[in-house]
Design a protein around this nucleic acid. Structure first.
Length: 117
DNA sequence: GCATTGACGAAGG
DNA sequence: CCCTTCGCCAATG
């Protein structure tokens, strides 16, 4: 491994940067982030970036990022399988059956929010 | 260096 | 409606 941190990679850094800008109580999807980065077909890369997110500082609120279905597809990657929904619950986001309730209401689209400036 | 695997997503059967 | 396939790109075996 190079001495470079995961954040050194522009794509990763960009993903982290966007994720950190997600307001409390809001969530977004991998596809939305990928779309904002202009690589909407590379939603998998966003997920891959998240894989490295836990090793990056400042902390990346990866719990605010779910798949387009609002499902906590990444909860298994947290310290515990319940940590993710617990964190979301603290932000008034209700999780039912691994799916965010009223996901559409809590949805925060960087393409819209960051474009409107 | 090719094959497999992903925290995805959309489309097709 | 459930399952499979494909595309995207990077990391890993």
């Amino acid at each position: 491994m190079e001495k470079k941190n995961p954040a050194e990679y522009s794509f990763f850094a960009d993903v982290f940067d966007v994720v950190r800008q997600i307001p409390t109580g809001r969530v977004t999807s991998y596809g939305a982030i990928a779309n904002y980065l202009g690589t909407k077909l590379s939603a998998r890369m966003v997920g891959w970036a998240m894989n490295a997110a836990h090793a990056v500082k400042p902390t990346v609120p990866a719990h605010r990022v779910v798949n387009r279905n609002g499902m906590l597809s990444g909860k298994a990657h947290f310290a515990t399988s319940t940590l993710m929904e617990e964190l979301l619950l603290k932000e008034k986001i209700v999780v039912k059956d691994d799916v965010i309730v009223d996901f559409k209401t809590h949805f925060w689209d960087p393409v819209i929010e960051l474009t409107l400036e």
